[in-house]
Structure formats: structure tokens, C-alpha cells
Computed example of a mutant assay.
Amino acid sequence: MSSSTQPSVSTFTSLEFLAFTLGKEEYGIDIQKVQELRGYDAVTRIANTPEFIKGVVNLRGIIVPIIDMRIKFNLGTPVYDQFTVVIILNIGGRVMGMVVDSVSDVITLTHEQLKPAPQMGAIVEADYLLGLGTIEERMLILLDIDKLMSSTDMGLIEKIAA
């Protein structure tokens, strides 16, 4: 049995997730990682960065890289409208923004409502999934935002923010 430094979702009695949409799917991230929500504003594009890194914004003196999750997960062409939200995250002391189609609510899930992520060809790699959250007829794809934002291809974000 291998030991892990990250607690699994099964070690908690309940967790709160911020629910958001990308395309037709609903996702959730740990609310404790969310610093604030903002409307989508123009960003300053950085040359020679992957397409999913939209650019940077100046947030009260902090240069914040902005990642478009629809592009990152290859979910079609993003549309920026009045519902588009930038979720400002604070992950390990790094501030970054993530563009999503909309934010719906904060959901508390109990251990019984958490299901393991299925091992199949999914848009989001299984490494970045905590599991699935079920709330009546709704199903939330729970992202491990720490792992996703510290993944190899996101390493460029640290360089941009520096």
C-alpha cells in the first residue's frame, strides 16, 4: 500500500466545492482554493505561450496568469459573454485565474455523495480528478485543482508570473 502526502476525498466527512460549467458539463473545485470571482476582462497576451494561457492581468498589483479551461480541455471555441467568470485561485501561494463559462453555486458534498472517477477515455485526465459528486440528478466532475495547476504543462505559468 502506498502512502500519499495528499489527503484523499474519503478522509473528509464533507467538503465544499464551487460548481462551474464548461460546455455542457458541470465541474467542482475545492472552495478553499478560491480567492475571488471576477467577470472576464481583456488580458495582456504573452508571446510564445500555449493557446490555453490567455495572458495576464494586473490584480491589485499582482500579475495573475489567466488560463482558459475550455481551451485547456479542448471543449470547443470559448465564448466570452456576461456569464463568463474568472475564478481567481490561490494554490500554494501562487495566484492564477481560470476562465469558465459560468459559476452556479457552492455545494457541500458528504462522503456518501463522492464516487471514484471512472477509468475511461475522458476529456480531463484521471490524474486531475478527485472523483464525481452526486447531488440528486446533478453530477459534478470534481477536479484536483492543485494537481492540475502544478502539472508539467502549467509550469509555464510560473515563468509568466515571475
Rank of each mutant, 00 (worst) to 15 (best):
N58F: 12
D144R: 01
L22I: 15
I160Q: 09
I123N: 08
P118E: 15
V99R: 01
Q35L: 14
L15K: 12
I67H: 03
V57S: 11
R138T: 09
G97Y: 06
L22S: 01
E36I: 09
T11G: 06
L156N: 11
L129H: 01
S8P: 00
G133T: 09
G39H: 14
S3L: 15
A162F: 08
P7Q: 10
I46P: 04
N48G: 07
V99F: 03
R138I: 05
L15W: 00
V34C: 02
S4H: 08
T84D: 04
V103Q: 05
D81T: 09
H111M: 04
Q35A: 13
F73S: 03
D153Y: 06
V64H: 10
F73Q: 02
K115G: 00
V86R: 06
L15A: 05
K54V: 14
P118K: 11
D144V: 02
I87E: 03
I160V: 15
L37Y: 06
P116A: 07
I53T: 04
R138N: 14
G155Q: 15
L75P: 03
G39A: 13
E16G: 10
D105I: 00
T134L: 13
I157Y: 07
D81I: 05
G155F: 06
V106L: 14
L140R: 07
V106Q: 10
S151A: 13
Q35C: 13
G97V: 03
L18P: 11
G39Q: 15
G133F: 10
Q6Y: 03
L37D: 08
